[in-house]
Design a protein around this nucleic acid. Structure first.
Length: 362
DNA sequence: ATAGGGTTAG
């Protein structure tokens, strides 16, 4: 399977239209520990000086408390208008914490335009981004789907922590930039000579990437990492591992991992059951569905929809009707995806009347 | 402080 066809091209800068990583990036990364230490002290001193200066020399009211109030009251537009109405030297009085509040408000309001505006103000005021402000911006841009901006923020941070790496990797993984996600994961392990230890948030992102690429070899490699780093017993990580094997078409390994779990949750069961269905092993999936119930796990919407479509594929009308009955009793019928799979199932059985009933059931 | 993980078909 061609990797490049699945991974959208990302152009990060007009100067580097075809390169995923601007050249300056490597330089920055390699010596960022030293840079970080120097600039960090420097910027701290600078902000202290600034706030000292403001509180004594200027008699105007402090913009920070006003802006913080606006953020607390959710008045994003007022806050943005206020910031942009200030002259640059007055903007200089705005503290990083205040910008953090505004950025987070933009994120929660999904306001990309406003967020970008604030970002451009911030860039005019500082050359480096602190950990807190950088992380807030990263998280905002990733959530709002602007990965180019996220990438630039990452590059401008004077210090990065595990959160920064996880957010960026997760953003790439979710948006289908699989190569970028894997590349960042690799860098994260080695950066600064020591690297960062991946955690429960890192692995699901990286595994999703391998699954998305269908890259079994990489997936297996990550499986090794996760054992080495001691996450073999983490339900969430292992759930992601199951899904990775399923997406790579290796249901056998998925099942081995599933069987080896000392604790399973609903997601583990669903991942494994639908994994069988996805790979055409419907009867095995249905068998597991029954053992799920034996193990006293309540099936949920996802279980039901996948089981219904499995009944359709296998052509098991009797079981399909039974599941329909169960679904009706438990009240899942109101769900669109359940309804759709019911309609499709009955249609494939040629039971038009039933299909129609499901259609009108809401 | 903040983040990650589960569905289906040509």
């Amino acid at each position: 399977m061609a990797v490049s066809s699945k991974t959208p091209a990302i152009s990060l800068h007009p100067d580097h239209p075809n390169s995923h990583f601007p050249k300056s990036y490597n330089l920055k990364i390699q010596n960022f520990p030293q840079i970080f230490q120097r600039t960090h002290q420097f910027s701290l001193k600078k902000t202290q000086q600034n706030s000292l200066l403001n509180s004594t020399s200027s008699s105007t009211t402090d913009p920070n408390s006003y802006l913080t109030q606006l953020c607390l009251k959710n008045q994003l537009n007022k806050a943005i208008n206020f910031v942009t109405s200030l002259q640059k030297d007055s903007q200089n009085n705005i503290e990083e914490e205040t910008f953090v509040s505004i950025v987070r408000l933009c994120e929660s309001k999904r306001a990309l335009k406003e967020g970008s505006l604030i970002y451009s103000c911030i860039l005019k005021l500082m050359t480096k981004l602190s950990l807190r402000l950088g992380n807030a911006l990263l998280s905002m841009f990733v959530r709002l789907g602007s990965l180019n901006d996220a990438w630039y923020v990452f590059g401008k941070m004077e210090e990065r922590d595990l959160f920064s790496w996880n957010v960026l990797i997760g953003g790439y993984a979710k948006s289908g930039y699989f190569d970028e996600a894997l590349e960042m994961y690799g860098k994260m392990l080695w950066v600064g000579g020591i690297g960062f230890k991946p955690d429960v948030y890192t692995f699901p992102c990286v595994l999703r990437t391998c699954g998305g690429l269908g890259d079994w070899k990489r997936g297996r490699e990550i499986h090794g990492h996760l054992i080495r780093f001691g996450f073999e017993a983490d339900v969430d990580v292992v759930n992601a591992l199951i899904t990775m094997y399923v997406k790579c078409g290796d249901v056998g390994s998925a099942r081995m991992v599933f069987d080896g779990m000392c604790r399973r949750d609903r997601i583990s069961w669903n991942a494994m059951i639908s994994g069988y269905f996805e790979n055409g092993e419907c009867s095995e999936g249905l068998r597991l569905f029954f053992s799920m119930r034996e193990c006293c796990f309540e099936p949920d919407l996802m279980t039901m929809t996948s089981v219904i479509s499995a009944c359709e594929v296998v052509g098991n009308e009797r079981l399909g009707r039974a599941v329909h009955g169960y679904v009706a009793k438990t009240g899942y019928v109101d769900d669109d995806s359940v309804d759709n799979s019911l309609i499709q199932m009955y249609t494939s059985f040629g039971s038009w009347g039933e299909a129609e009933k499901s259609f009108w059931s809401d």
